[in-house]
């Protein structure tokens, strides 16, 4: 059981990483980062079947922080959109990526 969960979690994590590196839309990139965080949550829950309650506690912290990050991140994306009318990261010319 734990092996399947870990394989799924690592697949999700790789998918998220790949998405951040390949996609150029800031919101999609942010979604992929959330996918990574959920892969981490899955790994924690899988491990805590063997290791005890700590992992599940950690998941709550990760979810809370992810929510806070989403609030700040979307606000920043909006403020970028106001200046550029796009959230595609290739379009930013002022500073080099």
């Amino acid at each position: 059981m734990i092996n399947e969960a870990l394989v799924l979690s690592s697949l999700l994590f790789v998918l998220g990483t790949f998405g951040v590196l390949v996609r150029r839309n800031a919101i999609i990139m942010f979604l992929c980062i959330e996918l990574q965080l959920n892969a981490v949550n899955l790994a924690f829950i899988a491990f805590s079947r063997l290791m005890g309650i700590d992992g599940q506690v950690f998941v709550f912290f990760v979810m809370t922080v992810a929510a806070a990050e989403a609030a700040v991140g979307l606000a920043i994306i909006i403020s970028v959109f106001r200046h550029y009318e796009t959230v595609n990261v290739d379009n930013f010319k002022l500073l080099r990526w």
Binding site: V20, M29, I76, V80, H83, V89, F92, L95
Partner: peptide
């Protein structure tokens, strides 16, 4: 704003 977006995306990525 643009610096903030870059820092946010890469910072959250590294947190992952």
């Amino acid at each position: 704003a643009e610096g903030g977006l870059k820092y946010f995306l890469l910072g959250a990525f590294s947190t992952g």
